[in-house]
Amino acid sequence: MQAEQTARRWLADQGVSQVRGGWVSDVEPDVLLTANQVAHSWAGDVFAEDVDAADQVRLAFGLLDLLDEYWVTCEIRFANEGAEGPLPADVLWDGYRQRLEADRDAEAVTYSLWVDWFEDHVTSASAFAEVLGTDIDRVVAERSEALLRRARRVLECSGPVRWAVKEPTYRTAVRLPALHPALFRGLLTSFHDVYGDLEPADALALLDRLDLPTDTLHLAELRHVLAAGHRNHYRSPGAWDDAVRSCS
Rank of each mutant, 00 (worst) to 15 (best):
D215C: 10
L155F: 11
R185Y: 12
L222T: 01
Q56M: 03
P86R: 00
D197W: 06
L59C: 10
E101C: 10
L148S: 04
V140Y: 05
A151T: 02
Y96L: 03
A106S: 11
L155Q: 05
G44D: 08
L176G: 08
A106Q: 12
D68I: 13
E28P: 10
V38L: 00
W240A: 04
A48K: 15
R175T: 13
Y111N: 15
E142A: 08
D68F: 11
V57G: 01
A178C: 09
D202N: 14
V140T: 10
L11P: 00
L11I: 00
W42D: 06
D13V: 15
Y111P: 11
D55Y: 09
E199R: 12
T134R: 14
L222S: 01
L206A: 03
W114K: 12
T34L: 09
C247D: 07
A53I: 04
D105M: 07
L204D: 00
A54P: 03
L100C: 00
S144P: 06
V174W: 00
L198E: 01
A164S: 12
D105A: 11
V46Y: 03
A89V: 08
W10Q: 08
V38I: 04
Q14F: 10
W117Y: 08
V244W: 06
R209W: 04
A89S: 11
T110H: 03
R77K: 15
S112R: 06
A35W: 03
D116T: 11
V109T: 09
L59M: 07
E156N: 13
G229V: 04
F78A: 14
L33G: 04
L67F: 02
P160K: 02
V140H: 09
F61L: 00
G85C: 07
F128H: 13
R104T: 12
L179E: 05
R175E: 15
L219M: 04
R175A: 13
V244Q: 09
Y96G: 01
L187A: 01
L32I: 09
R58L: 08
D103C: 07
A182F: 06
R77D: 13
R58V: 11
L63F: 02
L32R: 10
D68L: 14
F184W: 08
D26L: 11
P177Y: 05
A239G: 00
R162Q: 15
T169A: 12
E130A: 13
V131E: 02
V161H: 05
V115W: 14
T73D: 14
T172I: 13
G21C: 07
E119S: 15
D202P: 12
E156C: 12
L66Y: 05
D211Y: 03
R150N: 01
A127S: 10
L183G: 00
V115R: 13
E28K: 14
A146P: 06
R245N: 12
A173V: 05
E81P: 08
L217D: 14
A146C: 04
Q18T: 02
Q37V: 08
F191G: 01
V115I: 15
R235V: 15
D208M: 02
Q2N: 15
L222H: 01
V154A: 04
F78C: 12
R58Q: 08
L217F: 14
Y195E: 14
D50E: 14
C74T: 15
W93G: 00
Q5P: 07
A48L: 15
V244A: 09
S248P: 14
A178N: 07
L32K: 07
A127W: 06
V72S: 06
E69K: 07
A239C: 05
L132V: 03
Y170N: 06
L64W: 10
L64N: 13
